[in-house]
């Protein structure tokens, strides 16, 4: 098992190396002009420089904070509303239809609405991220909370669990696998909307960094920003799957 994990890890590192090598070949043979595609080395230099003078580091920190706050907001909201919908027939009948109406709205359509409310501010980015990323969590929680096996429902009836205890002890843990995969999807959405929001609001962040670099044809800086975005995605996915592995450890056996 461990050995197989190691092999897969190695394989994915090799794959990444292969891509970088292809990138190198493409720029070395000038298949794409360097104004658009810098050689990998130039991008990594830009990365190093950016972190050295602190500008890229602070942009990264700001972006991370926005992603995390928006994702947290969406998670708390999604889990709370989802739990309510999952457990209450009233909410399913009267609240869910309205939500179904809002859900297909792309987050990009929500941004102009958020702008009219909050202006080009951090609050606007937060609201947009919250709106866009809330759905996977909300739906997963509603589904998982409602999908408790009838036998467990009877067990909790026999133990005379109150509604809130039922939710806390039975329904939410039952929904946990669904909630975690919803949170995983939500994180990606939060990352995307944060970047778009930063591009629009021009507040310090990777979105703005990428935008400015692209406008002034600093392709090395542009790619440095993109590499960081990729790394953020990778690191957060890895972290989430570690947390998931621990929380769902009861599933791994047998």
């Amino acid at each position: 098992m461990r050995q197989r994990d190691l092999l897969w890890g190695l394989a994915s590192v090799c794959f990444a190396a292969l891509l970088v090598f292809l990138w190198h070949l493409i720029s070395a043979y000038r298949l794409v002009a360097p104004v658009f595609l810098p050689p990998p080395l130039a991008a990594f230099n830009a990365l190093a420089n950016g972190f050295e003078d602190g500008r890229l580091a602070s942009a990264t920190a700001e972006t991370l904070e926005r992603i995390f706050l928006g994702w947290l907001l969406a998670s708390v909201l999604g889990i709370m509303v989802g739990a309510w919908i999952g457990i209450s027939a009233f909410a399913r009948n009267y609240v869910m239809p309205t939500l179904e109406l809002l859900r297909p709205l792309p987050a990009s359509a929500a941004i102009p609405v958020a702008i009219t409310f909050f202006g080009l501010s951090d609050a606007m980015v937060l609201a947009s991220v919250g709106f866009g990323a809330v759905w996977p969590m909300l739906l997963a929680t509603a589904y998982g909370v409602a999908a408790v096996d009838v036998r467990l429902v009877e067990v909790s009836r026999m133990l005379r669990l109150g509604r809130f205890s039922y939710l806390r002890i039975i329904a939410l843990p039952n929904a946990l696998p669904d909630i975690l995969s919803g949170m995983r999807v939500g994180l990606v959405v939060a990352l995307i909307i944060t970047i778009v929001g930063e591009m629009l609001t021009s507040r310090t962040g990777l979105g703005q960094w990428i935008m400015l670099a692209a406008r002034s044809f600093r392709s090395a800086d542009l790619f440095a920003g993109i590499v960081i975005l990729g790394l953020i995605g990778l690191a957060s996915a890895l972290m989430l799957s570690q947390i998931e592995r621990w929380l769902l450890r009861w599933r791994l056996q047998a």
Binding site: D149, E154, M158, L159, L161, I169, P173, L176, L248
Partner: peptide, 26 residues
Amino acid sequence: IVFQDYGKALLPWRTVSGNIELALEA
């Protein structure tokens, strides 16, 4: 009550102690 399908009547995410504790919590 004790059900026939113990596999469905226990909380899979709780340990043996945790499953017994459920009745005490309740």
